[in-house]
Each structure stands twice: as structure tokens, then as C-alpha cells.
């Protein structure tokens, strides 16, 4: 599902997919965003402002709603 959304929102939203177990930069970013459980989605606006997160498996509908609200 996420792969499909990545393609669909290409040019509008940048997706950064990080494996919490293997990607070196994941640990620092998880600390920064307070991510204590995976999967978690963190949303940032174009100005870098933290626009919230979704913890746990998100539905496509839930993700789309959040993505569409990002500016």
C-alpha cells in the first residue's frame, strides 16, 4: 500500500522509509520524533513543522487523509 502511495504522491510529498532494525539513521530520527513503536508514520509540513504521527498499522484511508492535509 505504501509503495502505491509513494508513486501516487510523487512530486507532492517526499517519503522516507526507514527500517528501524537496519538503517543507521533510524535511531536518531526515532529519538527525535519520540517513536517508541514500529510501524509509525511521522508527518512533516513543507516548513519542517511536525504535523503529527500515526502509530501502528494505518489504513489507506487514514493515511490518505493525513497526506492530503499536508502543506
Amino acid at each position: 500500500m505504501v509503495d502505491r502511495l509513494v508513486k501516487e504522491y510523487e512530486g507532492k510529498i517526499e517519503f522516507r522509509l526507514l527500517n528501524a532494525g537496519t538503517d543507521a539513521e533510524a535511531t536518531d530520527l526515532m529519538m527525535r520524533f519520540g517513536v517508541t513503536a514500529v510501524p509509525t508514520f511521522v508527518f512533516l509540513g513543507s516548513d519542517g513543522a511536525n504535523e503529527g504521527k500515526i502509530i501502528g498499522a494505518a489504513s489507506e484511508q487514514e493515511l490518505r487523509a493525513k497526506l492530503d492535509s499536508l502543506k
Partner: peptide, 29 residues
């Protein structure tokens, strides 16, 4: 909750095109 050492947590790099960003943190296990 107790946190790890926080001093080194860097700010995420801004995107060149100033787009909104979505991070997904996942695991294979």
C-alpha cells in the same frame, strides 16, 4: 519512559524541493 542519549539527535535534512515529508519507521521482524 527512560530515553537514550539525546544530545546527538540531529535535525532531519530539509528536502531540496521543500516538499512535505513522511517518515515511515518499520521493521522486518
Amino acid at each position: 519512559l527512560e530515553r537514550g542519549a539525546t544530545a546527538a539527535a540531529p535535525a532531519p535534512e530539509p528536502t531540496a524541493s521543500a516538499l512535505p515529508v513522511v517518515y515511515e519507521f518499520f521493521t522486518d521482524t
